[in-house]
Amino acid sequence: MKAHKVIVIGDFGVGKTSLIRRYVLDVFSDQYRATLGVHLYKHSDIVPIDGTEQQVKLVLWDIEGAPLPGEQMMRYSLGASGAIVVGDLTRPDMIEPMRRAADMIEARLPGRPIGFAFNKHDIAPAPDDSNIAALKDRYGALITCTSAKTGDAVPNLFRDLTARIIGGKGGAV
């Protein structure tokens, strides 16, 4: 079975590592430890795709955070089947960096599905509907408010994207 590479990108400290570790290992830590380079996680899951449950294999790329996507992030994104762009709901200007990251994915990985994760939903409210609608329109993206701390919506974040990656084959994408 083919494994799919999914990259997780965004500014530092937004919770990329925490989201992946919640999904793969079902753990969480309040301690912040910056990620250097890339940490890889292999994960098998069962995901409903076009109405049937399917076994899938993922290689998740937990990529070092950066306020804006740079040369390094582009190198690491090579060959990804999909991308999750993470933002931190507690930060006032969170949307613009997420757009920039999504622009990079569009340019580098045209046609690959993007999922936006608005993280730390346990301590901050969801963004305005108008912002969500704008992102959906612009990138055709999935949008999920998550909390790595409580685990809220975390599996769905990855499963919905996976369903798009696999279900999208030969489809609309």
């Binding site: 494994a3 799919h4 590479k5 890339v38 890889l40 070092e64 090579l78 060959g79 990804a80 089947s81």
Partner: peptide, 25 residues
């Protein structure tokens, strides 16, 4: 496993893959 997904690039005449810091497993 970092090479998973990079098959197309690997099989190019002149593959360009430079990953400075990746966990081996």
């Amino acid at each position: 496993p970092a090479l998973i997904g990079m098959e197309d690039e690997l099989l190019q005449e002149l593959p360009y893959i430079q990953l400075p810091f990746v966990s081996l497993g």
